[in-house]
Design a protein around this nucleic acid. Structure first.
Length: 415
DNA sequence: CGGGTTTGACCCGCGC
DNA sequence: GCGCGGGTCAAACCCG
C-alpha cells in the first residue's frame, strides 16, 4: 500500500458530470462571493452542511477550508509573470499569480503529490528570500485551465530517499485534483489586485480571436494538438540546452515538424514502453531558445524503465535524452543514438543526482481537456507502484483526503 | 540486428 | 470545397 494510497490523489480524474459544479466553477463562485455575499447561497446548496455565515467575513482560503472542513495553511504568493514571452502565444497564456515553493522541491513531485503543498509543518513553501535567489514558483491560471510555473535558479535536489526516485522522476502528471489544489492555493490571496489580474487573464484570453485552436477549449490555451486531446496534458518549460531532457522514461522520436509561430521544429516522441500511449513533443521557445517546452500527452501507467546496462539503483537511461537536431545551431546535429546520460540533463532530479542547474519549469494542465478514462487504479503515473515513499506528510495527506472526501461527498467526484 | 532518428508524405480537424 | 496547420506514418538510415 502506497503511502499515498490513502489519499488516492488523482486516482480518478474525471471531475465532471454535467450536473456537478467543477472545482473551477466552485471557486469562481467563491470569488464572486467575495464581492457579492448572496452568491454564497449558491455555494450553500453545494455545501449544505457547512456553516458559511462566519465564512462570509473571512478570507476565501478560510472559507474554502471551512467548507472542506480542513484548515488550509496559507501560502505565499507573489505577482509575477517573468516568462510570459516565452511561448508562441505568450501574452494571453501566461497568468500572473505565482505560488512559491521551496528549492529542492521536485515539480513532478509537486504535480503528483499536491497534498504536500498543504503541509504546514514541513514548510514546503518557505520564503524565497531565505533561499537567496529567484524563487521556485508555481503559477496557477485564472483561465479555463490550470497553469503552474516553477522556477528555481538554485540547483534542485530533492531530499527524498533513493527508493522514491522512480516515483518522483517519472515525469510530470497533473490532473484536476492538482488543479483544484492549485486553485485553492491561489485563492488564498484575498487581494483585489489578484482578482483583477485574474479577470485580466481571461480578458487576454478572449482577446485573441486570431488563434482558431483556442476557441475549442473556451479560451483555454491550446498549445499544439488538434486531434490528440483524449488525455491529459502537461506542459513543462525548462531552461536547458538539452533538446530532450531525461525524465526517466524512454521515448522514441516519431516525427518532427515546424509549427506555425515557432521557427524551431517540434519533435514528437512516443513512450517506448509497450502499450503505453503516452506521447510528448518538445520544442524550443519561439522567443527565447534557452527554454525548452515539453508537452506530455497522456499519463504513464507503468514504472519508469530500468536503465540499460546500469544498476537498479538509479535511472540512467541512455535513451532518455538526445540531441536530435540543432534547432539553434548551438549543437551539432547528431543522428542515431543520443548522447550518453552524462551529457543528458535529468529533467527530474533525484536525491542521488548531484545538484544541477535546473532552472525553470513551466507546467500547464489543460483542465478543459477531457480527463483520462476512469480507472480506479490509474490517473497518475506510478500509482500502482509499491510504496516507494517513506516520507509521509500526515497533515497534507489528511488535508487532501479531506478535500477528496468532501468533493466525493458533495459532488460525487471520485478522486 | 535491434533500437533509435530522420524526413517527406499523408491524414485529419477546422475555419473560411 | 479548399487551404491551412498540427499530428502521425513509415521507409530509409544510423549506430553500437
Amino acid at each position: 500500500m502506497n503511502a499515498f494510497d490513502g489519499n488516492n490523489i488523482g486516482m480518478t480524474t474525471c471531475w465532471a458530470s454535467p450536473s456537478s459544479p467543477s472545482p473551477r466553477t466552485l471557486l469562481a463562485m467563491l470569488n464572486q462571493a467575495d464581492n457579492n455575499g448572496h452568491v454564497v447561497d449558491q455555494i450553500s446548496e453545494i455545501f449544505p452542511q457547512t456553516n458559511h455565515q462566519s465564512e462570509q467575513r473571512s478570507g476565501l482560503r478560510e472559507r474554502v477550508a471551512a467548507r472542506i472542513e480542513f484548515n488550509l495553511p496559507p501560502l505565499e504568493i507573489q505577482n509575477n509573470r517573468p516568462f510570459a514571452a516565452l511561448f508562441r502565444n505568450p501574452s494571453p497564456t501566461v497568468p500572473s499569480p505565482l505560488l512559491l515553493i521551496s528549492p529542492g522541491f521536485s515539480p513532478s513531485a509537486m504535480l503528483q503529490f499536491p497534498n504536500r503543498f498543504f503541509d504546514p509543518t514541513h514548510r514546503i513553501l518557505p520564503s524565497p528570500v531565505a533561499n537567496g535567489g529567484p524563487p521556485e514558483a508555481v503559477e496557477s491560471s485564472g483561465a479555463d485551465h490550470a497553469m503552474m510555473k516553477v522556477s528555481n535558479n538554485d540547483p534542485m535536489h530533492v531530499a527524498l530517499p533513493p527508493q522514491q526516485d522512480a516515483s518522483f522522476e517519472s515525469g510530470p502528471a497533473v490532473n484536476e485534483t492538482d488543479v483544484i489544489n492549485m486553485e485553492i492555493e491561489r485563492e488564498n490571496k484575498d487581494d483585489e489586485e489578484y482578482m483583477e489580474d485574474d479577470h485580466n487573464i481571461v480578458d487576454e484570453l478572449d482577446a485573441e480571436p486570431s488563434s482558431p485552436k483556442r476557441s475549442k477549449f473556451g479560451g483555454a490555451t491550446m498549445i499544439g494538438a488538434t486531434r490528440s486531446c483524449k488525455s491529459q496534458r502537461v506542459i513543462i518549460q525548462v531552461e536547458t540546452e538539452e533538446n530532450n531532457p531525461d525524465d526517466g522514461f524512454r521515448w522514441r522520436k516519431y516525427g518532427q515538424k515546424v509549427v506555425k509561430g515557432n521557427p524551431n521544429a517540434r519533435s514528437y516522441y512516443k513512450c517506448t514502453y509497450s502499450a503505453c500511449n503516452v506521447k510528448k513533443h518538445v520544442e524550443r521557445g519561439a522567443e527565447d531558445v534557452k527554454f525548452l517546452l515539453i508537452t506530455y500527452d497522456g499519463i504513464h501507467e507503468h514504472d519508469p524503465p530500468a536503465a540499460r546496462g546500469s544498476s537498479s539503483s538509479g535511472l540512467k537511461s541512455r535513451y532518455g535524452s538526445s540531441v536530435s537536431q540543432d534547432y539553434n545551431n548551438h549543437q551539432t546535429v547528431r543522428l542515431g543514438r543520443p548522447p550518453s546520460s552524462s551529457q543528458a540533463m535529468r529533467l527530474f532530479p533525484s536525491s542521488l543526482d548531484p545538484p544541477m542547474d535546473m532552472t525553470q519549469f513551466y507546467m500547464t494542465g489543460l483542465a478543459k481537456l477531457p480527463s483520462l478514462p476512469v480507472n480506479q487504479n490509474h490517473g497518475l503515473m506510478n500509482r500502482n507502484e509499491e510504496p516507494k515513499i517513506d516520507r509521509v506528510i500526515p497533515d497534507g495527506t489528511e488535508v487532501f483526503k479531506g478535500i477528496r472526501d468532501r468533493l466525493n461527498l458533495n459532488f460525487g467526484l471520485s478522486l
